[in-house]
Design a protein around this nucleic acid. Sequence first.
RNA 1: GCCGAAAUAGCUCAACUGGUAGAGCAACUGAUUUGUAAUCAGUAGGUUGUGGGUUCAAGUCCUACUUUCGGCACCA
Length: 589
Amino acid sequence: MINIKEDEKLSVLNHSCAHLLAQAVKHLYPKALFWVGPVIEDGFYYDIDLGDITLTDEDLPKIEKEMKKIAKDGKRIVREEISKSEALERFKNDPYKIDLIERMNEDEEVISCYTQGDFTDLCRGPHVESVKELKHFKLIKSSGAYFKGDSKNKVLQRIYGICFETEEDLNKYLEYLEECKMRDHRKIGREQELFMSHNLVGSGMPLWLPNGALIRKQLENYIYDKERRLGYLHVYTPCVGTVDLYKTSGHWDHYKENMFPVMKVDEEEFVLRPMNCPHHMLIYKNSLHSYRDLPIRIGEAATDFRYEASGAVKGLERVRCMCQNDAHLFVRPDQIGEEFKKVVGLILDVYKDFGITNYKFRLSLRDPEDTEKYFDDDQMWNEAENTLRQVLDSMDIDYFEAIGEAAFYGPKLDVEVKPAVGPEVTLSTCQLDFLLPRRFDLSYIASNGEKQVPVVIHRAIFGTFDRFTAFFIEECKGAFPTWLAPTQVAVMPVSAEHQGEYAKEIADFLSDNDIRVKLDDRNEKLGYRLREAQTSKIPYTLILGDNEKNDKTISYRLYGKKETTTVTKEEFLKLLKQEIENKACNKEM
RNA sequence: GCCGAAAUAGCUCAACUGGUAGAGCAACUGAUUUGUAAUCAGUAGGUUGUGGGUUCAAGUCCUACUUUCGGCACCA
């Protein structure tokens, strides 16, 4: 999808459209005051103070109509450069503009205004020549937005819109929005009975239905096998811990606001765990370790609970009960690079299997100014951050750095994946931690007989199974590759009376060979049953008529394809097995 | 959490400004025995998210809560 912000021409067009929006709002709501109206990836918005008035969705068409009217009048857009004192004078009744102007430095930038008809706005520009050029736009949505993005501030009203050069481009964008809705994992999840929620269970607490659970189980098995081959040891640990456990780890001080409240049992205080590091630390600590034993890799598909803000909860993507594909690697300092490399290698390997090609590595560093979030040990931070840079450089991996995105205990490498539609999601993470091993007093015996503190690498490849599933549903539009599909093969006789027995025989044969089969021998027309198999996106449909029955063959049809292929049941099974083994992804997603 | 919108049958939606809930699909029953995306007929399905309130009368108005949706803020 096009990124407006990266296109110079469209940026100017959209920013001009934001002014047009402001002018229309001013006409309809004369008391309106304007904050900023920037161009974003998906068009533009304007943050507006309307006093007591609150916009609803019904107001957008009215504003849009007024915009069209102004655009039709075709006033020229005139630039004017003014001094700071003049600007302050001109906008003296507008606290928002004063706020902007006061932070401007005359020596560094020119202060300019743009006027179109009866409307003038402080703006850097540039703009199109005339409002007449703004023809193909649409207001998309309105909402509240905190002034300056700070939740302590008052809420302004934000209107989003987008503008294109042609009607065709605009329509294409509107179609794209429809496409997003069609791919929404919540919609597909309901249609294909993957998961559900219930208000008695609570917000952000999805229930995985058999079809969804089957997919998740495949994912769990898949990553478990990969990890096992890489020397990971898998454990089970409880979903609760004492408050003292999290005080020891330091999470209590940093994140207790985001944990479910304390449960008091007898004299002890428990919390639902928001992460698994402390439990795994204690498992490491359960025995003595020689430098020869390291690295020790402890993995778990671990359920965690986080008290996500009510407004943040969304489908399987953002939940309050999640299952992490978590592991903690306990390594010697000299092993950091090698282990980190292996984790990055695993990430790339998994992405390949899932056909994920569009991703970016983000090196999340601490903000040295933020002494509240990050523990104070410059040397430790610098060392950790430099180690990560060296590893990435040595692997020839492109990455960008993000200040202030590190965990409180150390820097991390996050992988941002660009989905087929919608904004980027962070799936994998790999974090370096010099802090928790110290807090838990972990050690190993070095070759010289002295106790040393190991370094911990926290990593999650899928991130959480919940979020990954949400992501992948949208990637494949619910048409899962055969190895993940809840039902892999639909078997249907043309007529149950005539080929029903043969169909049953074929279905049993496949089922006995671990293929997930659904026999559809209902007394419905073939077209009806076939349609159902297609709409539920079952990868293979077998059609068995007299021809197949007499020749001892099967005819199969792939999801989304019209043509049929006829082979023996053994050949078909071989083909299926191979496809499942290869974890082939249908790349027409 | 904040700003706004919403919640009606399993799903998608309807019911004019208050007058006692209806359709399609799905389900079930019967007939049909079917060759590549919807055979026909019938049946059943609802304390309109929950609790209060206003009213002769509430799906519709008010109110609290729960959940969902769109953003904002947040995301160890």
